[in-house]
Amino acid sequence: MSAVPALGAERRLVEAASRLALPVALVAVFLLFSALAPGFLAAANLQSVLVNNFTLLSIVAVAMTFAVSAGGIDLSVGTAVDFASFAFVSLVLAGQPVPLALAAGLGGGAVVGLFNAVLIAGIGISPFLATLGTLFIGRSVQQLLTNGGNPVYLPPAGVPESFHLLGRGSLAGLPVPLLIAALVIALAAVILARSRFGRVVTAVGIEAEVVRYSGLPLKAHLAATYVLVALIAAVAGLVLTSTVTVYIPNSGNAFLLNAIGAAFIGTTLHRHGRPNIAGTVLGVLLLSLVANGLLMSGLNFYWQQVGTGLLIFTVLALSFASRKV
């Protein structure tokens, strides 16, 4: 009998070790690039990591985390980013007030989410295939809307002042886009971990049939999840457009793979391996630091993808290897 508590303690240790893989990797990457890449540690560089790499990806990855929590995936997050961006730009160009244009942008993203909701909750298509279809359709729609993919520029003169606040403004010394990302992260963390909706979504991801057999509306939760994912991604689209003052068709897909990577890396932080916002955010931070660090150390741009891939393997392998001990 005396071996039992010892085993329990050992298991707890192993569990803790497997959850440490992500934070340890983060610190290691930080130290590595501080040593290797001159200028990596400079305040200006670190701020640029946060604003240029982290902000938008963290919002999209947070969106993705909800889809993964519900046991699915959303390959069309980039489509929601683009649709939001397109609707926003179109209304600003048409001379509409910025708040209305922002609302339209969220609406543009919501259309993508509703479309997914119908496919997944209504018709019962698997999230992977449904959102893959949406991705393709969204791509064509954007090309049709822009004469084959021409960017829509906002002329610097024709844009109201309030527009710039969102993308380039700062509040109490902090860039507004970063503050928006922080707000999205905080709200998402509360919704996923503390709210009733988040609890049910988590249960759907773990065993959807149990949710149905418990008398809960499974389809409504699935539908709401994919609309929420698209709405959050739409926020990223709005921030993106405000920053660069241009809508480039199909540019949102650039976030897709990193968002998926971050959400799955993030699961290693959770005691039971569930998708979680804190983990996703650390995952995004890790990917952002690696991208920037590789760039700063003068490595060929194309090697960055290799670095990112190796890193994802390493974190997941460390976590699972220590779990199996």
Partner: peptide, 23 residues
């Protein structure tokens, strides 16, 4: 497959059908 979710905790399973009471 239908009665309990094996990867949810005892507590999460117990209140799954009655969450509104604890919200």
């Amino acid at each position: 497959r239908h009665g309990v979710a094996l990867d949810l905790s005892v507590s999460e399973n117990t209140t799954l059908a009655s969450l509104p009471r604890f919200t």
